[in-house]
Design a protein around this nucleic acid. Sequence first.
DNA 1: TATTGTTATACTCTATAACTATA
DNA 2: TATAGTTATAGAGTATAACAATA
Lengths: 147, 147
Amino acid sequence: MTATTPNAPTKLQLLELLAAVGTAQWQDFAAVASRHGLTAMQAKTLSQLLGTPVPMRRLAQRLVCDASNITGIVDRLEAQGLVRREVSPTDRRVKNVVATEEGVAIMRRVRAEMESTHAALDTLDESEQAVLHGLLQRLRPAMEHQD
Amino acid sequence: MTATTPNAPTKLQLLELLAAVGTAQWQDFAAVASRHGLTAMQAKTLSQLLGTPVPMRRLAQRLVCDASNITGIVDRLEAQGLVRREVSPTDRRVKNVVATEEGVAIMRRVRAEMESTHAALDTLDESEQAVLHGLLQRLRPAMEHQD
DNA sequence: TATTGTTATACTCTATAACTATA
DNA sequence: TATAGTTATAGAGTATAACAATA
């Protein structure tokens, strides 16, 4: 055992810790979304639409699921008036999904509530948050599957 | 801007990064489980049974879902011969779930494969892994809802 | 021919409510 | 009465396969 790493964790331990924290974060997100009448998946989808319109196909890639699922997810968002389908002017096969004003407003509220329910992160001081951010940022590209 | 935290991340940025890494980890887990004929939820359940038997009710608490769901999850694991229900000797209402030999064997393989598919973690050297572990460990109790 | 989105289908996970058998 | 597990039900997410419209 070296002096620099007194308690070197097993890779498995670190993976499980990552899983535990990730699960907790997801459940928090789902709870906040639910208070606004959205499922976690619907909220996640909506959060992809705060900027420019996104074709269905690309949405499937970003949400890492089969394209056929997007139809139903967007259907349910559209039924709530939070999203709109627009045929692409350049390729009439593709449909761009656009968040409505209400969709954007709801999603902003969800994000704000997530941020204000930040009690867990206050466990760490600002510099520790910066360190965590840096480490996770380096981890992310290696974990996300490129497509 | 202080000298010690040159790039202080927003809480929202950190939350989203945590979500991204958590999602990637979950998808990796699901992919490995799938290669062994299990859903992510089934694998997660089985991983709770490597030690002592666990009553259905406690399983529901640990998996953070309604008790009624456990019936189906355990049914499917039992149908694959990976798990067994045993009536508690001390309270005939409760059923303890026990992993069979094959259940333990499969779960050990899943965990080993998760560990060997650790490429992402190798992005960080050993001392960085220790720092990450420490930070996440402090975050966990604040994020997980006590019950 | 290839691609985009949709439909049909089947399975799993999820919560709610009502039920049973124990305690 | 209260608790453990189950069943019935309904909804949401998931993948596969087949399809129409468009490129």
